[in-house]
């Protein structure tokens, strides 16, 4: 079997297992039969279909979005340290969310969904401002300009969040727990809300998979090889920002996934974006589902913020792979 086929088979199998584990493991045991027969165990079936499955799917979608966006940004910005948050979109989403909590904003009819809606708006607004500003500074929209602009806006928006935290009273706990990130108690509506963004965003990135391979060698080289660099850049930035904004809006700022999953994928299966993008998508989903499983089961009955777990599990795994990889290649440095 070709290496790349193995990669997809293995990755998908892992994802399936993690989905099942994520949904089945917990204080209530879920038998296999609920998948096709709800009457076997009514309570278990309810817990599975109404609580655990949407949670697992949401975790998966968020993880997938962050990972594919991270892979695309790292490729586009040619910077291995880039992640979905580099361009400040997540900060924008956070400001939207924290504002909603801080000012107790509510939209008629929207109810609980005011927060993700505002968060999404924050993300979109930030993306537009960052890109407009970067374009005003440098018409050709160089990568360095983008990174710098992103960093500047991130810190500015970060200070706004800090300000609100400093001034908040009883909302503090709610704000902090949102910022640490969680996928609990969201249910199907959140899944439905994020799905279109995930689909459109991922598709936008996927159309640019070959362009990303070429862009790694610089914009000039990409132009020589026939890439419409400007169009590619906008598509990747817009797609990635859309995914990031949607993910942050439904789950808060979950770190590490967007940075590390693309790297792990590259190290194991190679740097070809035609595969890095889909494989990162799948691996991101798997990682976040497992992290969420650990977050909600490790110190029962309490739940940990998922962001704590991603780094806690991700960092050692990443280090191990990094070490192995360098050793086996017999690197000079």
């Amino acid at each position: 079997m070709k290496k790349i086929t193995v990669a997809y088979v293995l990755t998908c199998t892992l994802l399936m297992i993690s989905i099942w584990c994520g949904a089945a493991i917990g204080s209530v045991h879920i038998p296999f039969e609920v998948l096709w027969n709800q009457t076997v165990d009514e309570t278990a079936a309810n817990i599975f279909w109404k609580i655990r499955l949407p949670r697992v799917l949401l975790a998966g979608l968020v993880g997938a979005s962050l990972a594919i966006a991270g892979a695309a940004f790292q490729g586009l910005l040619k910077n291995p340290l880039a992640d979905p948050y580099t361009l400040g979109v997540s900060s924008g989403a956070s400001v939207g969310a924290v504002m909603t909590i801080f000012f107790s904003i509510s939209i008629p009819m929207a109810g609980l969904y005011a927060l993700p809606i505002f968060s999404m708006l924050g993300a979109i607004l930030t993306m537009i401002i960052v890109m407009t500003f970067a374009r005003a500074v440098d018409r050709s929209l160089k990568m360095e300009t983008l990174i710098l602009t992103g960093v500047i806006f991130s810190s500015f928006l970060g200070s706004l969040i800090s300000l609100m935290i400093a001034l908040s009273g009883e909302e503090l706990r709610q704000v902090v727990s949102w910022l640490l990130g969680s996928v609990s108690m969201r249910g199907w509506p959140y899944v439905q809300m994020i799905i279109p963004f995930v689909l459109i965003g991922s598709l936008m990135l996927w159309t640019q998979r070959r362009e990303l391979n070429v862009l790694l060698y610089g914009e000039e080289r990409a132009k020589h090889l026939g890439v419409n660099v400007k169009r590619s850049k906008y598509l990747i930035l817009a797609g990635g920002s859309m995914l990031t904004g949607a993910a942050v809006a439904v789950s808060g700022t979950i770190g590490f996934v967007g940075l590390v999953v693309p790297h792990m994928t590259r190290m194991i299966w190679g740097a070809d974006h035609r595969h890095v993008l889909p494989l990162s998508f799948l691996n991101g989903a798997t990682l976040l589902i497992i992290c969420d499983l650990v977050a909600r089961t490790i110190i029962l009955p309490r739940e940990l913020p998922i962001g704590v777990i991603t780094a806690f599990i991700g960092a050692p795994v990443f280090s191990y792979i990094f070490y192995k990889q360098r050793k086996s290649k017999g690197v000079r440095a």
Partner: peptide, 17 residues
Amino acid sequence: NAFSNSVREVVSLGRYP
């Protein structure tokens, strides 16, 4: 280049257009 590609992958990029 920030990431590592194999020689074949790099040459193949010439086929992009």
